[in-house]
Amino acid sequence: MTERPECAVTRQLVPELAAGTAAGDERADALAHLGRCLDCRRELAATTDLMDELLLLVPEEEPGTGFECSVLARLNEEDDAGAPVPSPVPSPVPAPTAPVAASAVPPGRPSRWSRLAWLPPPGRNRLTLLGVVAAATVALALLAAGLVWRATEDDRELAAAYRHTLEVAHGQGLSAAPLRTRKGTEIGTLFAYQGEPSWVYATFRSPPDPGNYQVHLLSKDGRCLALRPFEASTKAIAWGGKIPVRVSDIQSVAFIQSDTPVLTAHFG
């Protein structure tokens, strides 16, 4: 079939329309024709579909550690700043081409990665971890001693034991929250220690499902901070890691598997 002259002109421009690169005047002329010509609209739709498929050929690549947290923290800031919740009404019938208009990222915008600068590179924190675990063990043992005192002595003695515990560990405070599954079942305890360094330490009454967990701390000011991941084996009954915030600033700590927070401790 022979193309009509106006169709031939429009179809020359179809690739640029589909890629969203057509110049304004050419685009306006072409859109006017597309509004009248079903065949050219089909041509444009097919080319747009093809270009969409080409976009999907780009290889995936993992961003740096903490990227997810940084994005979520940024979104929290946007939310706090009062970005309106758009009406969940579908947009009007789309124009024939649908590249999303997006203005540029201002150059030189301050990086937000500094928030996560405290995070040690993977594999370089074994000694630190041992220190944390040892400190946690000492503190928990002393806390347990304190609890024994509570059973036999009055509250003043308990307070004294608690102070002694913190004194020995050079800490300023120790608190705890139940670690619950999504169904609310309590399967362990998350201890949070304020000191140098501050840390959290989870104990499980029974080993959680084996596998790799991401551990995220949500602070009361809306920041999401990635903690040391947890590789749970069938014998894993504890996990610990340093935290970059004060214990009093913790909102919750979540163990995440396959995009889902499966265990969470809320400090309120």
Binding site: V58, P59, E61, E62, F67, E68, V71, L72, C224, D259
Partner: peptide, 14 residues
Amino acid sequence: TAAFVRRYQSRVFG
């Protein structure tokens, strides 16, 4: 939101 970011971060970054 968190699940969406996790699902797409490697594609978007790529």
